[in-house]
């Protein structure tokens, strides 16, 4: 199987997705691949892990890796500005205040930040492989990530419905125009835009299925495992490829006392993980002493992923 060019790391909050995403990014970039790692979690911590300031625009770190913290709000604002700017040339000046109000209301509607985030991610995905060899996405907690990955399939029928409605309206219009002896055969800008939007969603859904892998990250605990199973089922049902899962903070076998007890519990979970993901090599990351912050400290994790065949 070809290595996925788009990798998503998903899992519950606090399991170490961000740290792993950073490590995967570092690994790929050290191999000489143009790699961008982005965080989509509104509560960003990628900058903290890589110990640098990050924003919505990708910036290059000293080692060669590029990183960004994506923001749905910024993207939504940017798009409203873009649409208003384009409209200024296309519609009468006196309706512009109303246009702006309608745009603002639409941009404030629930779901917009999510859609905007997906839109920004789509832009970046479309830059692979032209600008980037690898894109690593540190996703928001499971539910959020699932929704983000399923969004193209949820939205497409809506856009198609709107396009059909517009076609019906155009059809009725043309019939009247034809009877009055006017001809009205110019391409319809609205219909064109709806079709562009639909095609973009379609391309994205296709890319996610063909080029992406989702790596679920979990701690070796029973509750975390239950959620991971649900996420894995939902992702598989959506036709997405599951990459090797990562079990983080595994207690080494030579511990004694309290940690030895933990070890017994986690063995039961690990057995289930290996059973479920038999085909993939499960990556076990041992419980490490220090906190993993900064590119040098991440080195150990990078080496581990390298050995695991990532």
């Amino acid at each position: 199987m070809t290595p996925p060019t788009l990798r998503f790391l998903g899992g519950k909050g606090g399991v170490g997705k961000t740290t792993l995403a950073a490590a995967v990014g570092l690994l790929e970039s050290r191999r000489g691949l143009r790699t961008l790692v982005v965080s989509t979690d509104p509560a960003h911590s990628l900058g903290d892990v890589l110990s640098c300031d990050l924003g919505d625009e990708p910036r290059q770190l000293p080692g060669g890796l590029w990183a960004a913290e994506l923001s749905g709000e910024i993207q939504a604002r940017r798009r409203v500005e873009q649409v208003a700017h384009d409209a200024a040339d296309a519609v009468p000046r006196e309706v512009m205040p109303a246009v702006r109000q309608h745009l603002q209301r639409a941009a404030d509607s629930p779901g917009t930040v999510e859609s905007a985030l997906l839109d920004r991610l789509t832009e970046l995905i479309e830059q692979v492989p032209r600008h980037w060899d690898r894109l690593v996405v540190d996703s928001a907690p499971t539910g959020h990530m699932l929704r983000l990955l399923q969004l193209p399939d949820l939205l497409r029928p809506w856009i198609e419905g709107l396009a059909r409605q517009r076609e019906r309206a155009r059809g009725a219009d043309r019939m009247v125009a034809g009877m009055l002896g006017r001809s009205d055969d110019e391409p319809d800008p609205l219909l064109q835009r709806l079709h562009q939007r639909r095609d973009r969603m379609q391309r994205l859904a296709h890319r996610l299925r063909s080029d992406a892998a989702v790596h679920l990250v979990l701690l070796p605990e029973r509750l975390a495992w239950a959620e991971t199973v649900r996420a894995a089922d939902a992702l598989a049902a959506a036709g997405l490829r599951l990459g090797a899962p990562v079990v983080n903070r595994v207690v080494p076998p030579d511990e004694s006392g309290l940690l030895a007890q933990r070890r017994e519990q986690q063995d039961a979970v690990l057995a289930q993980v290996r059973h479920r993901f038999a085909a993939d090599a499960v990556v076990e990351v041992p419980l490490l002493g220090g906190e993993l912050v900064g590119a040098t400290e991440l080195g150990e994790l990078v080496a581990l992923l390298d050995r695991a065949g990532w």
């Binding site: 649409v83 296309a90 309706v95 745009l103 939205l155 609205l190 709806l194």
Partner: peptide, 15 residues
């Protein structure tokens, strides 16, 4: 649900 996806239709519909 598709408000964001249809933002660029709004100016035309108002016009």
């Amino acid at each position: 649900p598709v408000a964001y996806e249809t933002l660029d239709l709004i100016p035309h519909l108002v016009a």
